[in-house]
């Protein structure tokens, strides 16, 4: 390759990143198929294909009612939480930011619990069945906004450092967890069981209607984020410089945070809190490709989806036939990673 022609080198580098994204896509496809086959009830390839023509068969019922919704939920939630985390990390200039570490997920969970329990929306059994998903999602969104607006206020107007912001996020998370416990105290035992179950996210909770709603929100947000990818790149180098490029930095920062909260709210209201995916997926990809948001966004999205599908497989198989909540699995993976990033940051200073 001609070392002198920088355009050729740039295009080669560009193609390499596209290749990584395509590779991630195929890896996610592999795990989707793997996840379809594996479980308490093993299903062969021919059964999978047959079930599409005969959805009422025993295998078809398992696939369409249990496994496919789980996989689709994992994919959409992983995808959504990863892009939310990626954008939060950018606009707050904080590698530790994510819906979970900033307390946005906990705020959304509190909102959802208020919607379900206090206002009697939904019936409570071993699972929480949401009878009015729009209302509960709106409550979750309102809860998530409390955290988001607090974080924006502290970061922008009080000039908190990235570490202090994460500490504030932890405090917000603890506050909302405490408020959920207060709610439990005043609820009957069925509701308490449901809420405890709620605090650990579970991808087995949503069915096609809910999945579709999550997918629509995530898809529109993804498009919005991608359209702003050059703006995010510019913001990384500096606010003033980005403003000099005609970018309305304050508006983009605000809208991006709100959109990220919306993604979080929808996912939390249908699946509960799934921690750390939004932190781990973008950070892992940033170590593999650079911070160019045209690429890091789709790459983290796929990485998030892959991580949750794997976490789901682990949750279903590790103590089979018992299914562990996926939130517990992601925390096992995410918490050490969080400390690792802190450690890296400490070393740089």
């Amino acid at each position: 390759m001609d070392k002198k022609d920088i355009l050729k080198r740039y295009r080669f580098y560009y193609k390499k990143k596209i290749f990584i994204i395509i590779l991630l896509f195929f890896i996610s496809l592999f795990f989707i198929i793997f996840s379809t086959k594996i479980g308490t009830f093993n299903i062969s390839f021919s059964d999978i294909i047959n079930s599409f023509f005969n959805p009422n068969s025993r295998e078809g019922t398992v696939l369409f009612n249990v496994r496919f919704p789980r996989i689709a939920s994992s994919f959409v939630a992983g995808f959504g939480l990863a892009i939310a985390g990626c954008v939060m990390q950018n606009v707050l200039r904080n590698p530790l930011a994510s819906p979970f570490t900033l307390g946005v997920s906990q705020g959304a969970a509190f909102g959802a619990c208020v919607g379900i329990v206090l206002l009697g929306q939904g019936s409570l059994g071993t699972n929480i069945i949401i009878s009015n998903p729009y209302f509960v999602t709106a409550c979750a969104f309102a809860g998530s906004l409390i955290s988001t607006l607090t974080i924006i206020f502290l970061a922008r107007f009080k000039g908190f450092s990235p570490e202090s912001i994460v500490l504030s996020g932890v405090a917000l998370g603890a506050l909302f967890s405490a408020m959920i416990i207060m709610l439990q105290y005043f609820s009957n035992e069925v509701a308490v069981t449901s809420m405890v179950f709620w605090t650990f996210g579970d991808v087995g909770r949503a069915y096609w209607n809910e999945i579709l709603m999550m997918a629509i929100v995530v898809a529109f947000s993804f498009v919005y984020f991608l359209l702003n990818s050059l703006n995010y790149n510019a913001i990384q180098i500096g606010d003033e410089g980005a403003k000099g490029l005609g970018i309305n930095v304050d508006r983009i920062r605000f809208v991006s945070m709100i959109v990220s909260s919306l993604i979080t709210a929808v996912i939390v209201s249908f699946l509960g809190i799934i921690g750390f995916v939004g932190l781990v997926a973008p950070q892992a990809m940033k170590r593999m490709i650079d911070f160019d948001h045209r690429f890091i966004l789709p790459a983290s999205a796929l990485m998030g989806a892959i991580l949750l599908i794997i976490a789901d497989i682990v949750s279903r198989t590790i103590l089979s036939p018992v299914i562990l909540p996926i939130g517990a699995i992601t925390s096992f993976l995410g918490a050490p990673f969080f400390i690792y990033i802190l450690y890296l940051k400490g070393k740089i200073k």
Partner: peptide, 10 residues
């Protein structure tokens, strides 16, 4: 600007 942050972009 006087304030530019180094970042992981080429």
């Amino acid at each position: 600007s006087q304030r530019n942050q180094a970042t992981r972009l080429t």
